[in-house]
């Protein structure tokens, strides 16, 4: 009798948690009704603590505004995982989304055209060097002029043969930003119509912003390195 009673109480508590209080209120037996209500209160308390435990772990170093950003990043990550499976590299999407470069051009078009996201403005492309002998990374800061939200996307690539798909056809400013990243780090953007240096001269040697860059000795006969004779 008590096993059936427990199962019955569990059923009505489930219904009540979903918002349907009639099931409990219609129980004729007073004892059962009070047991059901007690079980409901306990169930509610348990779920609240579970949510409170989960929340602080995620809200570590964020301010109030990032509460909506957290859901934005989560939303974008879920949409990308559904549409382009296997492209997200890391599960932690609190501050940025780490992609692995596959289908990046299609993902960029999706981010720009999807009416909920509408990231129509590429703010900045930054190259990044983790250190000598480690990987290189490209970071994109996107922004939406209609929805006023922003997101950061990172793509890691190998140091010895860095290649990332180009997005210059999606956001036209990608053209010059990618040429600058190529000039400074040596990352080749596949599909770019004119992958040449933009800041340093065409015949410059080396990738200046890498951590292991050594300046060349002379350039067309002029001395380059840092200290002139007879200084200090």
């Amino acid at each position: 009798m008590s096993e059936d009673q427990d199962k019955y109480i569990a059923e009505v508590v489930e219904k009540a948690l979903r918002g349907d209080m009639d099931a409990i209120n219609n129980i004729e037996d007073r004892v059962t009704r009070s047991k059901a209500k007690a079980a409901l209160i306990k169930a509610k308390r348990l779920s609240k603590t579970a949510a409170a435990e989960a929340a602080p772990a995620e809200e570590t170093a964020q301010t109030d505004t990032t509460l909506t950003e957290k859901s934005l990043n989560q939303k974008v990550a879920e949409a990308l995982a559904k549409k382009f499976s296997g492209s997200i590299d890391s599960e932690d999407v609190n501050e940025y989304i780490q992609l692995n470069g596959k289908n990046w051009f299609e993902i960029a078009q999706y981010l720009k055209d999807n009416p909920d996201l509408l990231f129509d403005s590429l703010q900045c492309i930054t190259g990044f060097d983790f250190g000598e002998g480690e990987a290189l990374e490209v970071r994109y800061n996107l922004h939406s002029m209609t929805h006023y939200h922003a997101i950061e996307i990172r793509i890691k690539t190998d140091r010895n043969d860095p290649k990332v798909p180009s997005v210059e056809q999606v956001w036209r400013i990608g053209d010059w930003f990618e040429r600058e990243t190529y000039d400074m780090y040596g990352i080749v953007f596949e599909g770019h119509h004119n992958m040449t240096r933009i800041l340093c001269p065409e015949d410059w040697e080396g990738w200046p912003l890498r951590k292991d860059y050594e300046t060349q000795e002379t350039y067309h006969g002029i001395i380059v390195p840092k200290v002139k004779e007879g200084w200090e």
């Binding site: 800041l199 410059w204 200046p208 860059y213 002029i222 380059v224 840092k226 002139k228």
Partner: peptide
């Protein structure tokens, strides 16, 4: 003489009197 960029400026000419 290259100005404030004398130390780490790889692309800066250290003084126009070199040319």
């Amino acid at each position: 003489s290259g100005g404030p960029y004398w130390q780490y400026g790889y692309h800066v000419l250290k003084g126009v009197d070199l040319v």
